[in-house]
Amino acid sequence: MRITHRHLEAFRAVHLAGGFTKGAQLLGISQPSISRLVQQLQQAVGFTLFTRIDGRTVPTAEALALHQGVERSFHGLDEVMQHADNIRHHRVGSLRIVSMPALAHAFLPGVLARFMKERPGVVATLQIERTDALPHWITSQQFDIGFANLPVDKPGIQTELFDEAEGVCVMPAAHSLSAKKFIEPKDLRNVPFIHSGPNGRMQASIRHMFEDAGVHCDVQIETPLAAVACRLVEEGAGVTIVDPFTAHLYERQGLVARPFRPELKFNFGVLFPSYAARSTLVRQFMSAVSEERDRILGRAGAPRSRARGTAKPSSRKAVA
């Protein structure tokens, strides 16, 4: 006869309850039913499982040895059920994110850390790559989500505009320009300036803007990383223009940021592999990212993203 889980369940119940009647009550079945199951198990294993001593049901030595193996089996089953519960509530799985430096240095770590605190069984990856290298990682499905400057035009990628991200001028709180509501190129005449941007196009666009205004831009330092530029501002090396997400982090550390005019658009986008379904974990993370974006930019409840095959940048001057 084949031993089933029901046979082991009956044996375990009698052993734990100390009798057939109480064991049957534990399982919610009749006493004859549990007796029949235990009898069938005895026939299958070839030895007696319980005996009567002074009116009590007592497991035999063989039953005690068998019980150890049964408990291991039930413990394994409990682990399986717990794992299934974790999957059902999205507490396990993996989340693979690749991002351009601007968002990976200042914005994403905070969101990801808070997201992971509620999901201790999830394993996450946050890798930093240049925008021009990101499409390869997404189309090869080595990552679930990518953050890059738009436009990205490559088959196999679905893009969404995450935020146009208007540039801001970052300076020390005691700087004379901090009293202004917004900063224009003319305000930065002969002011030590730190050029930053994810690529040469950003720096070139800023230079053209100063040239169009007839203002000499006193570039002291150039760096491709907005976070490095803000650190240099902290050290008194000058002022810089960066995205609002990087600026937000350094405002918390004592710098101030003012809108820059005319507007500079970073055009941050989100990339997904076109031929892979987005998991619930991915959707939940994107919801958390969008909420944090709107909180930082003061746009709570104002959705900004739009899905498309390949996103187009804003019709205004795009510098990303």
Rank of each mutant, 00 (worst) to 15 (best):
R189V: 04
P185R: 02
I157G: 03
R189M: 04
T246P: 12
G197D: 11
A247W: 04
T159W: 00
Q203H: 13
E235D: 08
V152W: 00
E160N: 02
I206A: 01
L177C: 12
E235G: 07
S205Y: 02
H208C: 10
R231V: 05
R201S: 02
T240V: 01
E184P: 00
V233N: 03
D163E: 14
Q220V: 03
L161M: 13
M202E: 14
T159S: 14
D187S: 09
S196R: 00
M171I: 08
E160I: 09
R201D: 06
D218A: 10
K154W: 10
T240W: 00
S178T: 12
E164P: 03
A226R: 00
A229H: 01
A173C: 11
V242Q: 12
Q203R: 10
V233Y: 09
F182P: 02
A165K: 13
V191M: 13
Q220A: 04
N190F: 15
D153P: 03
G214Y: 07
D163M: 14
Q203D: 12
S176C: 00
Q203I: 15
R201C: 03
G236R: 04
T159N: 00
E166W: 09
K186N: 02
F147R: 10
Y250G: 03
R207N: 00
A165F: 04
V239Q: 10
I206K: 00
I241T: 11
N149L: 03
T223P: 01
A213C: 12
K181H: 07
K186A: 02
E234G: 14
I183D: 14
M202A: 13
H175G: 06
A148P: 15
V152I: 14
V239R: 09
E164S: 13
G197Y: 04
G156L: 09
P151S: 04
V219K: 05
Q158Y: 01
K154N: 13
I183E: 14
I241V: 07
H175S: 09
D243F: 10
D153C: 12
E166R: 11
F162K: 11
N190P: 08
L177N: 12
E184G: 00
A237Q: 06
